[in-house]
Nucleic acid binder design. Structure first.
Length: 569
RNA sequence: CGGGGCGUGGCUCAGAGGUCCAGAGCGCCUGGUUCGGGACCAGGAGGUCGGAGGUUCAAAUCCUCUCGCCCCGACCA
């Protein structure tokens, strides 16, 4: 491709969004263009990278036994009513009506459509397992789009749905997908972590999250460098900590006028925040629960929901708090609650003696509270959010918190959707059974961003060969120079037959061409400049900056050998 | 949805009631020079200052409302 006839509108100045390197470089390099918050056009270069990523994903899905289809983005409401997600998915679901007033949504995921398809087409265990997938545009009305392609309102996802006879079959399908995901990420040259995570609105019993570690990622990951334990922070566990157990003293009440925050109370009583216990009230599937964590910690709602088996966990509102405690917000405690409340105590708190809690009375706190003595314990669990420095639950060494981009998430769904939507097959023994499902999402457009995030330097992008928009760029230094032009043209036609080549034949000054080449980040660069007089051109590797003068007649051989070399890295 | 910030030629921004108030640099067009790291000279095109309303003799500039975008948080495959 001749750059003079291509469409790669690079920017000279940095776009204002400079916080996330991948977004800045994709915009500056003419890869993508924003048309609204979280909505992007892929320009030719970006689309080229996208297609390469998509193709790797497709190849690995097919290799793992997936069968490609294409489901519609526009979904009728009735299907979503069947799964109940028309109401439970929340405001992220884009809803719309057709001209007759019939309700539709723009699908954010395709469990419903795939179940509808399979319950129609698959009647016998003989047809199982079935793994169907598509690569398609998804819509989510994100409250806050961010990072360009990283969190968009419209994005492309590969989603595969597995249908099996039983749990054992599901395990096999799940494992196939796990391996396929690892192969994909390796081919993309992306470092990744496989995390245990929470399921979110998709549901399911067991999930793994594939996360690319990068400082600008928006997900927090708890990581143990010594044993490799890795988990999404929202549900990460922590080992046992030595706590200051305190002494068993009698319960007392103190006047704490207007002091509602941990900080206010602890400084007023001159105690450390680790000696106060926060009582957080929640409604779990309509039932009240109290969660107790140390004052210097945060509660993990994910873990709490997991331990109490709650589907919908919501912080109690002001009114509910008054009803349960008889006091306004800020004075809640586990002692003398007005109603029967399920009390979940963090494993650290249960060891503590003589702590401070709210007194369930306006302007009062209790001191000397002892769990078990002064209030009943319904459940002891690890419900506090992990902080960096906490001990690893597996090996006890120190946990770290890093950031990452979640690029894939795979779920063992079980029979939830099949049962809700009436999707049954006949098993060998003649009985009707619900399909046992799994679903496996991979953010294709997000992978483009993640790749840019990992593969760049201060001058621009440095694509790995597997996703680069072109293999090699020819830089014609002086387009006015007849000899340079002829030689560049020759190399262009010669190399084009063995690799994909972008030829910068523009009448631009050398500086512009070099800057653009580095910015765009094509792996190999061939510079046709003044050394042609000596029969030499220069070939260089974008990423490492290594550079060699090569005789004209050797350029093809050299380009190929360098290509093989960087491809193997 | 809370908090903060920003909307002025294609891009990055300056201008904070009037008279150099519609500007600069980059980009773009014409002509010429140049050609190994975002060249130079000359000429030129291009904006109802996000929108609506208001204050004023006078509004990019002050006020109100509104829309959009960015960042932090809440939320979230």
């Amino acid at each position: 491709m001749r750059l003079s006839q291509y469409f790669a509108p690079t920017l000279r100045e940095d776009p204002p969004e400079r916080d996330i390197p991948s977004l800045r470089l994709l915009l500056k390099g003419g890869y993508i263009r924003r048309i609204a918050a979280g909505v992007y056009t892929f320009l030719p270069l970006g689309f080229a990278v996208y297609k390469k990523v998509e193709n790797i994903v497709r190849e690995e899905m097919n290799r793992a036994g997936g069968i490609e289809i294409l489901m519609p983005a526009l979904n009728p409401a009735e299907l979503w009513e069947e799964s109940e997600r028309w109401h439970t998915f929340g405001p992220e679901l884009f809803k719309l009506k057709d001209r007759t007033g019939r309700d539709f949504c723009l699908a954010p995921t395709h469990e419903e459509v795939s179940v509808e398809l399979v319950r129609w087409a698959v009647k016998s265990y003989r047809q199982l397992p079935l793994l169907i997938y598509h690569i398609q545009t998804k819509f989510r009305d994100e409250p806050r789009p961010r990072g360009g392609l990283i969190r968009a309102k419209e994005f492309v996802m590969k989603d595969l749905y597995s249908f099996d006879r039983d749990e054992k079959g599901l395990d096999v399908s799940f494992e196939k997908m796990r391996l396929a995901y690892e192969r994909i990420l390796k081919r993309l040259r992306l470092p990744y972590l496989v995390l245990e995570a929470e399921a979110g609105p998709i549901g399911g019993k067991y999930t793994l999250e594939f996360t690319v570690p990068t400082p600008s990622g928006e997900d927090e990951v708890v990581l143990c460098r010594s044993c490799g334990y890795a988990s999404s922070r929202s549900i990460a566990q922590r080992g046992d900590v030595d706590v200051d157990e305190g002494e068993e003293v009698p319960l007392g009440k103190v006047h704490t006028p207007g002091l509602t925050t941990v900080q206010e109370v602890t400084s007023f009583l001159s105690v450390s925040p680790s000696r106060i216990v926060k009582t957080l009230l929640y409604m779990a599937d309509g039932k009240p629960i109290a969660a107790l964590v140390r004052g210097d910690r945060e509660l993990s709602e994910g873990k709490l929901a997991l331990f109490v088996g709650a589907k919908a966990l919501q912080m109690a509102d002001e009114e509910t708090i008054r009803r349960l405690t008889g006091a306004p917000m800020g004075f809640s405690g586990p002692v003398n609650l007005k109603e029967k409340v399920f009390i979940v105590v963090d494993k650290e708190v249960v060891k503590m003696r003589g702590v401070v809690t709210g007194a369930n009375e306006e302007d009062f706190h209790f001191v000397g509270v002892v769990p078990g003595r002064d209030f009943p314990i319904s459940l002891v669990a690890d419900i506090a959010l992990v902080n960096s420095g906490d001990p690893c639950p597996k090996c006890g060494s120190t946990l770290e918190i890093i950031r990452g981009i979640e690029v894939g998430h795979i779920f063992k769904l079980g029979t939830e959707y099949s049962e809700k939507m009436g999707a049954y097959f006949q098993d060998e023994d003649g009985s009707l059974k619900p399909f046992v499902m799994g679903c496996y999402g991979l953010g294709v457009s997000r992978l483009v961003s993640a790749s840019a995030e990992v593969h760049h330097d201060e001058d621009g992008l440095c694509w790995p060969p597997s996703v680069a928009p072109f293999d090699l760029i020819i830089i014609l230094v002086n387009a006015q120079d007849k000899q340079q032009r002829e030689i560049a043209e020759g190399i262009y036609s010669q190399l084009s037959s063995i690799m994909s080549v972008l030829y910068d034949d523009r009448e631009e000054s050398p500086g512009v061409k070099f800057k653009d080449a580095d910015l765009i980040g094509i792996p190999l660069q061939v510079v046709v400049g003044r050394k042609v007089k000596e029969g030499l051109v220069e070939i260089r590797v974008r990423k490492t900056r290594e550079s060699k003068d090569v005789a004209l007649e050797e350029i093809e051989e050299k380009a190929l050998s360098l290509w093989e070399k960087i491809r193997a890295e």
